[in-house]
Design a protein around this nucleic acid. Sequence first.
DNA 1: GCTTGACCTTAACCTTACTTGAGGTCTTAT
DNA 2: ATAAGACCTCAAGTAAGGTTAAGGTCAAGC
Lengths: 153, 153
Amino acid sequence: MKHPARNPFADDLSVGQVASRSGIAVSALHFYEAEGLIRSRRNAGNQRRYPREVLRRVAIIKVAQRTGIPLKTIREAFKALPQERTPTADDWSRLSAAWKAELEHRIDRLTRLRDHLTDCIGCGCLSVRSCPLHNPWDELGKQGAGPRLLDPD
Amino acid sequence: MKHPARNPFADDLSVGQVASRSGIAVSALHFYEAEGLIRSRRNAGNQRRYPREVLRRVAIIKVAQRTGIPLKTIREAFKALPQERTPTADDWSRLSAAWKAELEHRIDRLTRLRDHLTDCIGCGCLSVRSCPLHNPWDELGKQGAGPRLLDPD
DNA sequence: GCTTGACCTTAACCTTACTTGAGGTCTTAT
DNA sequence: ATAAGACCTCAAGTAAGGTTAAGGTCAAGC
């Protein structure tokens, strides 16, 4: 084992250690750094050294990504924190509440879509004028650009 | 208005007509054709002419996409139909049932994630060993590639 | 018969989120 | 002291799902 942190006084983590602890590839960590999502110090040999709190930051990034938040937005959220600090418990509380709302919105949209799909299975209605999944575009398209009644985003 | 289908005998649609009726850009229709999702005949002047059923096909493509099905998969589904016909009511029934299952799976995953997020808001637990959103990676990462307990796909 | 708008093709570009490769350096165990 | 393995940078590639541009043709109305 050649990891620097064998030394108990060096609390810092190498990029490889962060990778193995976070489950994120080294290349992805480089990428996050280039995108301004995480930062590192360098040792004498120009290698990255991360404070432990980077693990927390990375954990937040992963959670946010799974809710469908783009990296750009995560970066903005981090930047908006005082001193661009790594989110505290309190910061996390606010961030996660906002992202949860986002997530619920997405769930709602998918659920509505599923319900329409449920109604339409077996009715063959894609061929019929009254189908809510199909008809709007065909009927209303005549009046210009196609309205997307079910996908108002 | 210069649309060819002024002529009541020409039931076929030009690409522009399909675009305005379906709400899909002409460039996207070209793209779908190149990807094998739709087909067209050509008139004497090499312009695309679509039978009306293309609207049905396109409607199905849009619905499938909104459930998160990639184009590649949609194409496979179409190819699997007898004679690669445009889906009949019956075909649609089977396709939409399969896609609905997919959709429900996605909703489930997002819902689980939301529930974890709900539990974690305000608990500050991202900093604590017991947090299900954070801990696994930090703790288990030591044993190799990071497990993603909440994202088993 | 000419202008205009719809259409054609091919190729390049876009965004997001990374990975891969090439060529070179550091660190650490032995 | 040396070899292995971890690390460095920078450029290019990948995937999906298109859009945009360039250069040219076709069709319809006046």
